[in-house]
């Protein structure tokens, strides 16, 4: 019953809308992956040679 109600309320996306949604998702995914790489590189640059300067 609940499923039926939810199906009634669903918005059916056209193929064009589905394509746009897919592209938005890809863009968000790429942006997040880019941020991860960026913060990793920033960390390495900021640590510099100090990363080796620690008690072993």
């Amino acid at each position: 019953m609940v499923d039926e109600v939810m199906r009634d309320d669903e918005i059916e996306l056209t193929p064009a809308q589905q394509r746009k949604r897919r592209n938005r998702n890809i863009a968000i995914g790429l942006a997040l992956a880019g941020l991860v790489v960026l913060f990793y590189l920033v960390t390495i640059v900021k640590l510099g040679v100090n990363v080796l300067n620690r008690p072993l």
């Binding site: 996306l13 056209t14 064009a16 746009k20 949604r21 592209n23 938005r24 863009a27």
Partner: peptide, 9 residues
């Protein structure tokens, strides 16, 4: 409108 494109953003 049914969803914006990446270009719209």
């Amino acid at each position: 409108s049914g969803g914006a494109s990446v270009g719209d953003f």
